[in-house]
Structure formats: C-alpha cells, structure tokens
C-alpha cells in the first residue's frame, strides 16, 4: 500500500494563512492523484469483494444476488477448501525458500563478482519478462514433459522410475513457481547487497572474522531489507497463483487460486469464491505482519 503522508509541521504554529499554510496544503494536493487512484482501484473493488463474500449462497445469475451478511460462507468455504488453501501456503513457502537460496547467490554474484558484466546480468534477470508469463509456463510444460529430455535424463540415471513423471507432480508446480518469481527475489536482494560498503567486509576481516563469519555477521544482516522485500514479493503472489498449478500440475496439486477461479468462472458460486478470497487475503496479511515484526525491519528499511 502506498504510504504518503503529507509533510507535518513539528512546531504547531498559530500563524494562519501565508506561505506556511500554503505549504501544508501542497502536501494534500500531492497525494490527491494517489488517493483517487487508490479509491477507484482498491477501495471500490475491495468493497465489492467483501460484499460478494457476504452474498446469499442461494443466489444465481438468474435470481440475482443479495448481500445477506451470510457469514456462514466463510465457514463453508474453509471446511470445504482448507486443503488447497494449506497446499497453496506450503507450495508458496517452498518456492520462496528456493528463490531465496538461488536468488541470494545470484544477487551476491551480480553485486560483488560480476565486474563489468553487472548491467548485462541484471538485464538477463529481467529478460524473461519480455515474454508472457503464460508462454513461459507453457514452455516449462514442454521441458518437463513425459518425453522431454529432463525426464529422459533422470530416468536414465534412475532418479526417476521408468513410469514416473515430473509433470502433474508437486515438484513441477513448485519448480514453476520458483522459476516465475525468481526475478522478484533477485532484484530487491541485489538492491540491498549493492549498497553494502565493501570496506565494511574488509573491516570485519581485519577484526579476525573469516570470510564466512564476515558474511553472517556483516553482509547478511545488512542485506535483510532485501531479504524481507524479496520474500514478500515472492510469497504473496505465489500463494495466490493458479497458472503454475493448472499448467504443470494435476487436480491433486490444485491451489487456492485454482479453486477461486473455478468457483467464479465455472461453478458461478460467487459467495463462496468471495469468502475464500477474503480468507486468503486475511491469512496473508496476518502472516506478513507477523513476519515483518519478527524481522524487525522498521529499523532496517
């Protein structure tokens, strides 16, 4: 969310009118576009989502829908779809963890070791965005396909049995999520690693810290803002993602995003779909707040 606070004056001042007064108003004028934008595209849809989640579950396209404050929608949605919900959180957590490991190594290499290749490597990180998300996930379907070279190779070295497959397994879905959200991890990590003064690492080694100690005592803590930013940017969209599960998985890997999509488009059960969306949002909100608290980023950011 955008947190734009108008410039507040530390000294409460009785002088009315004049330039001071005008300066105060400028702050409000500046947030006006953002406020209008947020009102149109956040508050209104959010209100309509909340309303939908409280629809009468017996309504239909023909009979129309009424907001009946039917809170039981939440209970029903949860009891029926808790499995995809938990699965979503789990897959997203796994993908975030993999992204963090891969992304950290990559961002570290770009920030400290790439030399004059730095810019090229950054462009390469962003390059996948030039093709559509959908196309990229479809190509993963080809790569991990039953007759693809990955499965063939794994079968040859007997990591996969001859009738085992990658597609339609949790592995494929988590791999897809990891791949698709990796740039969201790399960029914030790079931004905060890049800012670290190399002389601090030198100071650490001058003060008896071996390279690994210097990393955990200096580099890692100083990169925490990037870690927090990256994990949030990865975890939140990954939890709600439905493309990876529908293209790379099977009904057994259904995530909550797939369920919501089905309920809205196929079943037409708006009430339950809305309730599920609100629940997902609340869970993420609570997790994120808890996480930020824990990581103590107020001080770091």
């Amino acid at each position: 969310m955008v947190a734009l606070t108008p410039e507040t004056d530390p000294t409460p001042d009785a002088v009315a009118g004049g330039p001071r007064q005008r300066r105060k108003l400028t702050g409000y004028w500046l947030i006006l576009p953002t406020a209008v934008w947020l009102g149109l595209f956040f508050v209104v849809p959010f209100y309509s989502l909340l309303a939908t989640s409280l629809f009468d579950p017996d309504g239909s396209v023909l009979t129309g829908y009424d907001v009946t404050y039917h809170f039981a929608n939440f209970g029903h949605a949860l009891s029926e779809y808790w499995q995809p919900m938990v699965r979503s959180l789990w897959y997203a957590a796994l993908a975030t963890a993999f992204c963090l490991v891969l992304g950290y190594v990559l961002a570290y290499a770009i920030a400290f070791r790439a030399g004059r290749w730095k810019n090229l490597m950054l462009v390469l990180v962003v390059a996948p965005f030039f093709t559509s998300f959908l196309i990229r996930t479809l190509s993963w379907k080809l790569i991990l396909g039953d007759n693809g070279w990955v499965v063939d190779a794994l079968q040859t070295v007997h990591i996969l049995g001859s009738d085992n497959r990658l597609l339609a397994t949790p592995i494929a879905v988590v791999a897809g999520l990891t791949y698709n959200f990796l740039p969201f991890m790399v960029l914030p990590l790079y931004a905060s690693l890049e800012k670290i003064d190399g002389r601090l690492i030198e100071a650490a080694s001058d003060l008896y810290a071996s390279p690994s100690r210097a990393f955990f005592k200096v580099t890692w803590p100083l990169s925490l803002p990037g870690v927090v930013g990256g994990t949030l940017l990865t975890f939140i969209p990954a939890t709600g993602d439905f493309i990876n599960a529908s293209l790379l998985g099977s009904p057994n890997q259904r995530m909550v995003g797939n369920v919501i999509q089905d309920l809205f488009t196929t079943t037409g059960d708006y009430a339950r779909a809305g309730a599920l969306s609100v629940i997902l949002m609340l869970i993420i909100l609570v997790l994120v707040l808890f996480y930020i608290r824990k990581a103590g980023t107020e001080e770091l950011l």
């Binding site: 003064d197 601090l200 100071a203 080694s205 001058d206 003060l207 810290a209 210097a214 200096v218 100083l222």
Partner: peptide, 20 residues
C-alpha cells in the same frame, strides 16, 4: 597471510563502522 589471521588491526581512514 589472510587478514583475519594477522596480529594487526586497522583504524580506517573512513572509520568503516558497522551500521547495524
């Protein structure tokens, strides 16, 4: 010898204090 094994310490020209 690796810097962290030397019996030598430095007061850096730019301090290099750990900000965190």
């Amino acid at each position: 010898e690796k810097p962290y094994r030397r019996p030598v310490n430095t007061v850096f020209q730019n301090y290099a204090l750990f900000p965190h």
